[in-house]
Design a protein around this nucleic acid. Structure first.
Lengths: 96, 96
DNA sequence: TTATATTTGTCAATTATTGACAAGTCATAA
DNA sequence: TTATGACTTGTCAATAATTGACAAATATAA
């Protein structure tokens, strides 16, 4: 999972411990560990707070986090690629 | 929503009533109505059964249904497009 | 050994989803 | 007008999924 890898890399590059970030997010360390390994999903507020704590771009972190959720939805689905084509087509109608 | 529109079109082109399809899916008519209008999600088994009942391609119907779920996840997200780029990149690693 | 960091497994509590029901609208027929 | 049929809307309980906490396990050093 992209998001977990990213926050782990940023955390380690800053010499921070899981428990330090976990405390800031007001969750316990085991849960933070699971989020890093992609076993659990972070909540949006956590992602936003992490972007501050890790001094990284919020939009890019949210993109990774969102992407993970989509991948989670599409994994094991033979129609994943076809579905993505439809999404691309549709998304242009309202997004910008 | 793409999926709902599609099943409605197929249903009407075959002159079928909501209650007839609902009975086959073993759900009530109000729920079927909501699925057609995208207010509720169909379950995978329902999609598969509908492809038979409506004599349409199962893979294409599942693609539409999947696409709707992704769109639902991405709607209202400013990072939708960026996230999709990441998904496209990632999906190539395992799917094919 | 001991101490510290992270991971694993399990559980209760919360939250989301599902489907049913009753009542509503709308159109058309009698 | 009233009645009927197709569909829609709103609400609710039951079920299922997700969340976070805790205890215990593993790993890594000192």
């Amino acid at each position: 999972m992209e998001f977990g890898e990213q926050i782990r890399e940023l955390r380690e590059s800053k010499g921070l411990l899981q428990r330090q970030l976990a405390a800031n997010l007001e969750i316990d360390t085991p849960l933070f560990s699971k989020i890093e390994r992609g076993e659990r999903k972070a909540r949006k507020e956590h992602v936003e707070k992490l972007s501050t704590l890790l001094e990284t771009d919020k939009d890019q972190l949210l993109s990774l986090w969102l992407a993970d959720q989509v991948i989670d939805l599409l994994k094991d689905e033979p129609q994943a690629k076809e579905a993505l084509k439809i999404v691309q087509r549709e998304i242009k109608k309202y997004g910008h």
